[in-house]
Structures are given as C-alpha cells and as structure tokens.
Design a protein around this nucleic acid. Sequence first.
DNA 1: CCAAAAGTGTTTGATTTACACCCATGG
DNA 2: CCATGGGTGTAAATCAAACACTTTTGG
Lengths: 240, 240
Amino acid sequence: MTRYSGFVQVADTAMHPPFAVTVDLVVLTVRDGCLQALVVERGAEPYSGRLALPGGFVRPDENLVSAATRELAEETGISRSAGHLEQLATYGEPDRDPRMRVVSVAYLALAPDLPEPVAGTDAAASRFLPIEPLLRRRGQLAFDHGTILADGIERARSKLEYSALATAFCPKEFTVAELRAVYEAVWGDELDPRNFHRKLTSTPGFLTATGETTTRGGGRPAQLYTRGTTTLLNPPILRG
Amino acid sequence: MTRYSGFVQVADTAMHPPFAVTVDLVVLTVRDGCLQALVVERGAEPYSGRLALPGGFVRPDENLVSAATRELAEETGISRSAGHLEQLATYGEPDRDPRMRVVSVAYLALAPDLPEPVAGTDAAASRFLPIEPLLRRRGQLAFDHGTILADGIERARSKLEYSALATAFCPKEFTVAELRAVYEAVWGDELDPRNFHRKLTSTPGFLTATGETTTRGGGRPAQLYTRGTTTLLNPPILRG
DNA sequence: CCAAAAGTGTTTGATTTACACCCATGG
DNA sequence: CCATGGGTGTAAATCAAACACTTTTGG
C-alpha cells in the first residue's frame, strides 16, 4: 500500500516529506453528576464502527484554532464563546493512521451541559458518554484516541484544581452549589459546602455576583454569579 | 511564488492538503545566575542573519519526540538522559513560514549548565543567551520564534513552582543551595535558605541523599543529593 | 411548622514565616 | 579564631478543616 505518493515541492527546491494535519477534540461536559466526553461512531474504514473523537483535516488556509473551532461547531453546535477551548498536545507516531502519515493536533474543550447535539447536522452521530467506561475500554477507540482522551481528562482534572476553569462547565449564571457540583463530579470527592462557599467567595475577582438569586436548587435562594476576572486559584481547591 | 505544488495522494483516493512538519526547541539552562535560552543564527533565507530557535524537519518515519531528541543532540550535544524534555505546543498559522505551509511542534528542554556547545558540529552556531534581552526583542526573532520562546519560558516558570523540575537544571549530584540558586535565578526572588532547606528535605521522596558532602560552595560541607522519585511539590515553593 | 439548602461564626490544629542560634569547614 | 555558608529550633502569625448555628425559601 502506498502511504503517500510524493514529496512536497517548494520554491527553494528543497524537498520535504508531506504530512496530513488534523485536529481532534476532547470535548468534556458534566451531565447527570458525572464527567462525560463527546464521541462519534466512525462510518468508514479504518476503524469503521468504532468510537472516535470528533475531528478532521486542517484546511490549507486555516489556522489550528480555527480548524478546532469549526469542527466543534460542525459536530456539536457549540460556539466558541460558550465554554473553553485550549490546545492539548500533538500526536505524531508514524503508524498512528494506517493510511498515511498524519499528525494530529488535539484540543481540549469544556462545555456546559447542552440540551442535545443538534440533529440534522454532523452532530447527529455524536453523543456524550461517561468517561469511566470509555477510559476502561480505551483500547477500543479508533487510532490513538484512547490515549488522547486520557490525556485530555488528566489535563482537565489538573487545571481545575488551581484555576477557574470549572466555571466553563457552568451556564453563564450559576450558583456556588452548582459550581461545587462540578468539582464533585470531576473527582468523585465530596466537598464541605460551607468551606467551599467561603473559599470561592472570599477570593477577590474570582466570582462576580449578579445581584439576582434563584431557588432552582430548593431551599433558601442562592446568589447567582458569573465568571470573574481572576483565573488563578491559590491555594487550590484540593490539596494533595 | 508557488507555496506548494500539489496535494498528497493517498491510497483511498481522498486528497489532503500537504503540510511540512517541523520541531522547534526551547532549550533553557541556568548560567551565571540567570535563565538563558539556546538560539542559533540563521544562515539562509528567509530571516537570514536573524536569531532563531534550533529545530528542523520531522523525517518520514520518525515520531515527534525522536525528532526533538535528534535535533537537540545535533545542535547542542545534549543527550536525552540529562535534563528534561516535554512537548510545549504546536504552531500552525498559515503564514508563519513564507515558503510553504509549515506546522511546528515545539518542545521544551531544560538542561544543566554545560561546558559549551560542542564545536565541530551544528552546535557551533548555537549559543545560550540571557532570556531578558531576548524577550524584550522577541519581535526580532525569525518566524514566530519569539512567541514560542515566551510560551516556553512561561511554561518552565509555572511548572517549576509545583514540581521537581528545577532539578533538571542541576548536575546529577547537587546541594540544596544549588537547587535554591535555580529557583532564585528563574524568578529573581530571594528565598530564605533555612526554610527552603527544611521544606525540600522534609518532603519525602523528593531528594535522595547520596551520603557524600561537598565544600564547593565554601563554608560548612553540604550534603549532596540526587533527584528523588516524587515529582510533585504540594504546596508549591512560591505562593501567589 | 418542617424540610431543605444557603450562608456565617468560631474553634482547633496544621502550616508558614521570621529569625535566633549552633555546626563544620577553609584560610 | 574568624568568616562563610550549612543546618536546626522555636515562637508568632496565618490558614484550613470541622462543625454548630442562623437565614430564607417551598410545601
């Protein structure tokens, strides 16, 4: 099988081996009290029928973030403005795709719980699944996507500890208890509601009170907040 | 100017735009009490005569770490075993190289202070320069290497805070004072020698005493240590 | 009024900081 | 014996965990 047919010819006459470049996405959300990841079922060879991460080829005149943003919108309907998007890592083992030499730039996206992937688009084939079974069977995922998924989850967990990233899983306005539920879902640990509340509200610039309250959790009305300007949390929520 | 002459033809008949893939290296060391970065002077267009980061094309059957390791050895004589090497980020703006579409995977390397780059090799053209002037004139660097360098330094600083990475700047055996000098060089801050000593020696598994002592710092002989097995430091050296 | 969740105050123990002090060497 | 840096002890200040207690809603 011909892996690729030639070399890229550039103007200075040097010859460089050609690569295809893709972006792959680890999209995480918190749903039903647990951390879930977005997967698609592959419809074509190789790995037809297997679960894979959403992603696709980078276009000739598109930068990497744009490609990731575009794929995210195409496959989930999530716009860049909600949630959070950051580069994760790049994967380039020569045999990671049996067809040809593909280097994949992986992105990590954190999104609030959405109604459902938008039907009638590519997103129809995509769905959120709890990460525990996915990680246990990571070898079943297409390509090296099991590794990419594990790396993305590890990154998300470690960044949540000492940054305001958890708010990316919440809707625009949220209560302290909703934010706490995110932390508890990500680690499985229980946190003391009272100390958690004090810690976050006493960090200046971390949360911005809207002045509105809600009773959607039951009980006494809770203050609604939006993300503040401070992104770093020092010391972190969980201590090792 | 022809940016590239064609498309990569793969066996399944799909056509994908061809990219060249390179690795670029941010190599840091502590020398003369300050953080320094390895740069080379470019000998060819584009950016001839400008300072650039060491790096080069990824070969057809080579993975990304191997390419980074190879370039590091070729340009500095540093072997993988000394120091530390990790992936930093990937840069893929369509116009970052005027010749063609190049995606560059950047690696961050931390190395102990070496005698000198090995002469008679590619390394002859490379040298360590203090990071302050380089960062001030980051716009002068070839391609987007100013951005890559800044990202690498930021990553190194933030990882040093809460991990054992600082030992990568030290020779195999080192004293607590030598390790403290690394932290002081990286941030410019002064740290209390006594509390610093207590903190590191009381973290189990962080440092391994060799039993040997040295008087190379003057004064009372200091215990020599090697890196321990524990990589994480919690809480970190510097508090925000 | 009761249950449920939000939010505050206070106690206790751990951690950090600052700095006094002793130790072991070279000159 | 003195200067130099290595290393230990300790008290005061700060911070975090645990939990009793008050507040404000819905039913």
